[in-house]
Write a protein that binds this DNA or RNA. Structure first.
Lengths: 129, 129
DNA sequence: TAACTGTATTAACACATATAATACACTTAA
DNA sequence: TTAAGTGTATTATATGTGTTAATACAGTTA
């Protein structure tokens, strides 16, 4: 469910956050579904519980999960989670596009590039891969 | 010319790299133009020469600048510099757009967003701001 | 009550960042 | 040739972050 990459320069707790964020946003994990307990996930990834605790704490701060004392951590309501994630992606999108324009790129080229990627996205529904 | 932000969690040498990369790519610094010496830039930013040295070393590895022993560091040829920077931006662009599509965003919305940003970019030429 | 939750604390270690103080080889101009 | 300016390398030190480790505590649930 979660893959750690020790060649990745990013800290482990960030990699865990990324994985969980994606699982939550993509809908693989449903709203109000219980996440594995801190100790459980730490054991299965062979890392320290404190590291998982930190990932959970920061994911809660970002709004992707919520915690009930003594019961566990759970996935936040779907709409909210998608919204905050999309917002962060759109911010990156804006910054990147602005820089590309500043370097002389024009909207037409980027639109074409986008349509190619959109093709791949939709075609994949009919593919058996 | 270069602004350091100590609230920024990124290391100083990366902030210096970012600033110089932008100056080089945007054309503010011309090809074969001499960069300030390691000691000179360190003094003007009130940081350690070793930190600047690291920024220069890594910028050379990335191809943005080149060094002549005993003479100094210089801006790489323009086309090459723009190419490698654009390539990295386009990679970010592709990843971001793919994720947005996966979340149900469609090309039309993003294209509109892009055109808004392109407007701002071109209008600024006529503005007196 | 026992076993599970999240949370907090303290200590120890590794690593990256940054500073500091030198030293060396090369280039350039006086 | 010499002096001053280049980049580069080395060693030591301090600091902060990431991670592990060992506990401890309060709330929940069966």
């Amino acid at each position: 469910m979660i893959q750690l990459n020790y060649k990745d320069p990013r800290p482990i707790y960030e990699q865990v956050m990324d994985s969980l964020r994606r699982l939550v946003v993509s809908g693989v994990m449903k709203p109000d579904e219980k996440l594995p307990s801190v100790r459980e996930l730490a054991t299965s990834l062979t890392i320290n519980p404190n590291t998982i605790q930190r990932a959970y704490r920061e994911l809660e701060t970002e709004g992707y999960i919520y915690t009930v004392s003594g019961r566990g951590s759970f996935v936040s309501p779907k709409d909210y989670v998608k919204d905050i994630y999309k917002e962060s992606l759109l911010e990156t999108f804006g910054k990147t596009v602005s820089e590309l324009f500043a370097l002389g790129e024009n909207p037409e080229t980027l639109t074409k590039q986008m349509q190619t990627l959109y093709g791949k996205e939709t075609i994949s529904h009919d593919s058996d891969q």
